[in-house]
Computed example of a mutant assay.
Amino acid sequence: MLTITNTPNHTGVKISGDYFDLDGLNQSIYQVIGAEEKYYNYAGARMRILGVSYEIRQAAQGGRNIERVFNGLQEKVKKQHNFIAPDKNIYFSVEILWPEILFTSLALRDFVRMHRNQAQNPEWDFHLYNIQHFQSLILDCLRGRISDKDYQTILQAFSEASPTEEYVIQYIDFLNLQYIGMAVSQREKTLPAVALKIALKDQDYLSFRQQVLAAANPFKKAIHEIPIQADYPKNITW
């Protein structure tokens, strides 16, 4: 079963599941976001989603964390059916920073909408429901870390947010790095504000966008092609 939980230091979320959970999620992501340049104005958002998808794929292949999780098989059941079997399954997991996973959830909303509009029978499309389940797990995990009032405000903001078309994805790097640098207590207090910043495109975002556009225009590059001049720490305390 796919699960998403908060990391001990509130740095991000841990996405966990068996191989089939994670691989199935990845297959749904690929189907919903479509081929490269299918939605050209969403290239930056697609790139960001693929970054999370890459981490999930690495986890499914055993390249991140491996855990043993109780599978519900009790001794009396083994005796009843007269067989020997382990009572734990192998689960794989990977951590994703909070700003990153929140943007992923928001951006997937747009790809779900576009995929639904083009699907012949969207009500029977497994991939749509799989992605929406993933999004709901992210927001439910967020709900466990903040007040009900903040959660309702964020839900409304995410529902009413303008599309992530031509979103300046470097802003997510900026928020990620800010968030990593905070004290643990500050992260918990700041998380609702971070979620709203991603959805509402406030003045900080607009100013940041102008800087990226100024860097992109002389070279006639797309805004998502401009690298951010900052490095992530090699080791993150999750």
Rank of each mutant, 00 (worst) to 15 (best):
M114F: 11
T190L: 02
T237P: 00
Y39P: 00
G62N: 07
I236C: 08
H115D: 05
P8C: 08
Y91N: 15
S53M: 11
E36K: 15
S162F: 01
A193M: 02
K149E: 14
G34M: 03
E37S: 03
A119W: 06
L97H: 02
A161G: 06
V168D: 07
Q61A: 06
N26I: 04
Q74N: 09
F208C: 07
T104F: 05
N9M: 09
I66H: 11
I223G: 10
D87I: 12
K76V: 13
Y54H: 14
T7I: 05
L175G: 01
S53K: 04
I15N: 09
Q58P: 01
P163H: 08
H81Y: 15
D87R: 05
V194T: 07
R209Q: 13
R145L: 11
R187F: 00
I56H: 05
Q80D: 10
A161S: 14
Y171D: 04
K38E: 11
F208A: 08
I84D: 13
K197C: 03
D18K: 11
S105N: 14
G51E: 13
V13A: 10
G17W: 12
N6D: 07
D21G: 11
D87V: 04
R187H: 02
E100F: 06
I4Y: 06
S105A: 15
Y30F: 11
T5D: 14
R116P: 00
I33M: 03
V112L: 04
I172D: 02
I169C: 09
F158N: 02
D148K: 12
V184D: 07
L177Y: 05
E55P: 03
W238A: 08
F208V: 10
I96K: 10
A214D: 11
Y129M: 07
A161M: 02
N121I: 09
Q74R: 15
E37C: 05
A85I: 07
Y39Q: 06
E37A: 00
R113V: 13
Q135V: 02
D204I: 03
K189F: 04
K201R: 15
K78M: 15
F208P: 06
A85L: 08
I198T: 04
S136M: 07
L196Y: 00
I138R: 04
K221Q: 15
N121C: 01
E100Q: 14
I198Y: 01
M47A: 11
A43G: 13
G51K: 12
E166S: 14
Y39G: 04
I236M: 03
L175K: 04
